[in-house]
Every structure is written in C-alpha cells, then in structure tokens.
Amino acid sequence: MERSPVAFDQNFSGAASDFPTLLRSEGLLAPALVNPVPQAGTPQKTWQPTEATTILAFKFSGGVLVAGDRRATAGNTVVYDRADKVLEIDRHSIMAIAGVPATAWEMARVLEHSFQFFRRTQLQEMSVDGKVRALSKLLRDNFGFVMQGVGVVVPIFATYDPHPKPEARLYFYDAMGAQFEATDYAATGSGSPAVRGILYYENTWGRKPLQELSEDEAVSITLRALDTAAESDTSTGGVDRSGKIYPLIKIVSREGITTLPESKIAALFKETVA
C-alpha cells in the first residue's frame, strides 16, 4: 500500500511509552551497541574527545548541593572555560556530568524529554526510582562507545523525592550504568580524588557533618574542594581568579532547583577561600 504523507500511520496504537525507544524507532538516537568491541591495540592519539571534569554533590541542611567546575579539555588543550556541567533535567532533578560533553548533553536531553514524555502520556510523574533507572539505561546503552574509547560519561544525579518520606536523594554512576545511592556525598571526574578526600575529611573530622552545614558553609567547602582539585589536576578549572570564572552551583530542595548567583559565589569566595 502506498504510504500516505503523514507522520503517523492509521493503526497507531500509542504503545511506545519509553521515549528512547521511540527516538530510536525514528532514527533520532544512536542504537545501543549490543556487543561492544574494545578498542584494538594502542589507542590512536590523533583525535581526542573533549572532556569535562570534576563534579561534586553533597547533602546539607538545605537539600543537595551540586557543583561543577567550568573547564572542558581535549587532551592537554583547554577547549572551553565556561562549560556548564550541572544540568537541570526537571523541576526537582539535576544531572551533573564528567566525561564527554557531546554524549552527556545528549543524555541530559533524552532524559529531560523522557521524564516529560512519561508525565504527559501516563498522566503521572515518573517515580524517583524510574528516573534513576532511566539514566542507568542510557549509560548502559552507551557502553559500546565507552569501550571504543569515546563517549565516556560518569554522571551524578540529584533529585527531591516527595514519596514516601520527603527527602533529597543523591546518586552517582559508573560508566557502565551501575547506580549507587550516596548517603552523604559523591564526586566524579579527574579531580574527584582530591574532592573526595576533602569531603570525607570534612564529614568525619570537620566542625560539623556535611548534612548539618548551612548554605554558606556548604558553598565555601565546595569552592575550597574544587580549588584543591584544580591545584593538581590540569583538567579542572577550579576558580579562575583572573578571569573571574566561578564554579556552577545549584541546590535541589523541596521547593525545586535554585542556581546560586555568581555574585553570591564571588562574595563567599572572597570572604572564605581566597
């Protein structure tokens, strides 16, 4: 039968409740590689993907703070010093990315649309478990590219769960898609060993545990941690004192997401870090 020039066919059943599946059926998303082949031999150094590094998140008295430095690199080259690695997915969810931005931004876009698509088609909000799992699936589907040496993404996901007990929740992932719920803090990216060290120290022997920090205290620890990471890791931007580039900091709470204004971060930096 001749195909009519319309975008959906007569016997459409509306069965695709999974947005990535729908995108794949339309050729809008790369198919998941079923049998990933590892890169053969020595990695070719002719081309290096752009990568973004060092993100952290921890729970404090006002919810979850998620922060990222602003640097994106390709090998030894700084590609961009104002990269946005802390992405809002919906009114209560943030995904922060370390790894290849091209893949990560695409994932964030798929995720954002998936949640909305679910709400619109199913007439209810996707559960936090569903959201966490959706990101896990995207990472799993992307693993073929990771094995080939491109497209590694190691994200952090922070969200506010109204059910059953209203609380902020924090997850981090590995490149294969395993999800880990963090009780206190998480950090990924090349500068993360330093950040984890600082957060562990603060949480255990600091003046108070991370969960009891006020917003200002949380921000100043964040700035100190990223600055420390940048000290030894060239891929981490930290705080650029001359260019006045500050990390991006967002907070998830019951009320939704707030982005801290740069002026506030700058003031706290001057007062407690510099």
């Binding site: 509306g14 947005f19 729908l22 995108l23 339309e26 876009r109 649309h113 698509f117």
Partner: peptide, 8 residues
C-alpha cells in the same frame, strides 16, 4: 509523540 520527537 509527534510533538516530543519534534521538540527533541
């Protein structure tokens, strides 16, 4: 579906 794929 049409609006979402277009928007994506």
């Amino acid at each position: 579906e049409l609006a979402s794929t277009e928007g994506f």
